[in-house]
Nucleic acid binder design. Sequence first.
DNA 1: CTGGATTTTGAGAGCTACTCTCATTTCATG
DNA 2: CATGAAATGAGAGTAGCTCTCAAAATCCAG
Lengths: 213, 213
Amino acid sequence: MTGMTAPHTSFSPADNPRLGLRERKKIKTREAIRTAMYALVAEQGYDATTIEQIAERAEVSPSTVYRYFPTKEDIVLTDEYDPLIMAELRARPADEPWPVSLRHVMHRAIRMGMKEDPVVSRLRTRLMVEVPAVRSRMMESMSSTGRMLRQAIGERTGLDPDSLEVRVYAMSIVGGLLETSMYWAEQEHEPDYDALIDRALNVIEHGLPPENH
Amino acid sequence: MTGMTAPHTSFSPADNPRLGLRERKKIKTREAIRTAMYALVAEQGYDATTIEQIAERAEVSPSTVYRYFPTKEDIVLTDEYDPLIMAELRARPADEPWPVSLRHVMHRAIRMGMKEDPVVSRLRTRLMVEVPAVRSRMMESMSSTGRMLRQAIGERTGLDPDSLEVRVYAMSIVGGLLETSMYWAEQEHEPDYDALIDRALNVIEHGLPPENH
DNA sequence: CTGGATTTTGAGAGCTACTCTCATTTCATG
DNA sequence: CATGAAATGAGAGTAGCTCTCAAAATCCAG
């Protein structure tokens, strides 16, 4: 009743006063839905959590949930790393060898995602391994990541981004990295993610290591 | 009423007299459902086709459709190339270099799938490009293909099939080949599929070709 | 060939993700 | 504060998918 906003423990774009009230509310709603879903999934598991429950906890109507997220899986997943990766790639020196750039950028992306919210990022990879629908949705988003990547490769190498070669190359990278994150989740997130990424990129660049026997 | 079987234009496992009546009927039902779905999709498109319609045309109940296929997408997709690929891989000479074996086997698999029913195989790849749910399901089946592949790689190279390296390698191959089939479908199936596979495997083996400028 | 065990099928109820429409409320602005 | 625009809520409806139970088809002994 006072018009004062409740205290927050962390900052978010919702607190940016330059945005109109409408925009700030939208961001808050989005966050509320995500938070509600994460909590419910932690309590009951993914499948047992219904949109209705999420709506109730987030204090919105089910309709609103669907307005903000096209599918249930998207509530857990969408966080848009792609534009971030793209920007970082463009920021690398133009004469840097392509694989080196890729390595740098992947490491930065990982670090950002982890620093931001390690709990969420682990929950997400765990759901990827455990819930088929989520994994499926994740793989679906692979194709758009692939498109972005081949765009970047095109800019950098001068090759046609729509050629079969570039497309295959981009998709094999995306596939390899996705497998890496699943591996990480399956190992209970215990290994160093950065190191795994490095090993994965090694394989993609140079093929399998020689067998030792 | 005569006990005579109706004439067939093509042979199928359903005609194998060594199987009991029960088994033969099951195979026929499976085929009937698939055929019904393919026809309806050709007529109306994927989304407009409901399970009820499929059941009606296949002359079974909706319950039965679900008994034979876990999801709608599976009616279009499942055809189990994996065991076939695995068998072919094992049949290659043990001292043949791994990439050579892979190339042979992929070509054989393609040829078999095409010869068997080129219409269906094109419809399938087209749906993969056009219907997100189908593409998604296809990618999901990638992971099991990946598992099979890394098993084979393990047998051949002596590397641990569960190591990150082998897993990443297998998944990058699968990702690259999936992209190839999408490329093929997007080009209206006009290019020679075999040639595309070769170019894709080249990229996976040797990386991108040098830019020509 | 027949009777009983087993498997397959059909009917139907039920759940939930997701879509669409329309009235109501909430914010922006002159 | 009034007017227009945007966000929300309520509710009905579709379709994929699951489960249960009784009826029908198949198998197999005797």
